[in-house]
Design a protein around this nucleic acid. Structure first.
Lengths: 228, 228
DNA sequence: TCAAAAGTGTTATATGTACACCCATGC
DNA sequence: GCATGGGTGTACATATAACACTTTTGA
């Protein structure tokens, strides 16, 4: 009976100024045995004894980024026999949604560089292990998810405008949405609760909203669609 | 860095006489170190070196049931620290769809009893490990899947009647479907290709169909819904 | 008064849903 | 001729999609 190395890796999404970002870590070559020095990689690492997968993800993200996770969902488990050049290793991948952090991110112990990449201009490479594959799977999942579930509670600030929310959908779906139909739909579910008006640097003030948590949760289970 | 036992476990679905079945194995107590003797368990076991998860699933199902798998999809990875009483072990769970086998099933090496259970009357227990949880997750996934993707190609015989297909949906969704609307929808996609008429023991002969593979595949990706 | 961003309704089309009777066969 | 299972169409309700101009503000 075989034993394998098991680690968790997380694809993290954060939303800022109407763009969607993923943080990637540039691996340092701390020891000669660490593979893929200088390659881009996800936040992740081994699971401690007694820890379950989610705890391991949260611990790693706290260690590497000093971040609390809003939402965590198991994505897929990657286990191609040759995915780690050293020996057989499997990765339980998660995808995480977070609020854009206020302060600068702390660099992790085994990384020399953390950078945020807009999802439509991810680096070409090189990527450590099969992390490029994992990122692609996470993006695909989030794109699918946005079509039949509410998304945004764990990415947007507490208060947000309809335009913010719509830009999130736009970033993911890469197609134009109709402003009027979009608002109409959301209001028809009473998913949005108006809070106050906010005057930006330019233009007419915008109405801010919060999600109605109960409705949000209900729609997560029942599903809905946003349409045009 | 920790190493864990890694195994695959498959929840298998097969459709026969308008009912949906899952095979379960009654564990023998071959050696005193094997846990859960006499408990119901899924087909599964360790992964061999050099084998990926899917290969391991297929090998196990061939060994245990002498079956070829039509469709295999990764379901979820279970890794609660206490799920195996012996030591830390994780299970990469798959769900499999197969055509109802013509001949009797062979009993596996480490099982004393294989039984097919209709999904609505699964045994109360006891189940080995967290296999009850895994089965519940698989059923939930198949129920969700049936709502937005075509299902049936890998469960039904090559030729089938609309009533067969509808009964499959009925078994999963546990609600009544409208015969007329059901046919109308499927024909509108040209998902069904008529083949020949079949005279059962009673009643009017029924029109048999095959799936149009190209349309089936397209709908798997695009998604669709069946409605009432 | 201009530029910037936000807000707002109506109509046509497509889709979904409800509903009941006749048909072909074997016995 | 009757019991069994299979087949079929229409009318109504709801949901989606397309579409452009006016409002509020700061500079």
């Amino acid at each position: 009976m075989e034993k394998f190395f098991v680690s968790v890796d997380s694809v993290i999404f954060a939303y800022h100024e109407r763009q969607l970002f993923i943080p990637l870590f540039k691996r340092r070559s701390v020891s000669p045995s660490e593979p893929f020095p200088g390659h881009w990689s996800l936040a992740g690492g081994p699971i401690l004894p007694g820890e379950d997968f989610e705890q391991a993800c949260r611990r790693k993200l706290e260690e590497d980024l000093g971040l609390d996770i809003e939402y965590l969902e198991q994505l897929y488990t990657f286990g191609a026999p040759d995915r780690d050049p050293r020996e057989r290793a499997i990765s339980v991948a998660y995808f995480a949604l977070i609020r854009w952090p206020r302060q600068e991110l702390s660099a992790g112990a085994d990384t020399s560089d953390t950078r945020w990449f807009e999802v439509r201009s991810l680096p070409e490479g090189p990527y450590a292990f099969d992390h490029q594959l994992i990122i692609a799977a996470a993006l695909q999942r989030l794109r699918a998810k946005v079509q039949y579930q509410p998304v945004g509670l764990n990415l947007l600030a507490e208060e947000f405008s309809v335009a913010d929310l719509m830009a999130l959908y736009h970033a993911l779906l890469e197609r134009e949405l109709d402003k009027r139909n979009f608002v109409k739909k959301l209001l028809s579910f009473s998913l949005l609760v108006p809070t106050r008006k906010f005057q930006g640097p330019k233009g007419r003030p915008t109405q801010l909203y919060q999600f109605d948590r109960a409705v949000y949760q209900a729609l997560q289970h029942e599903g809905f669609s946003i349409g045009s």
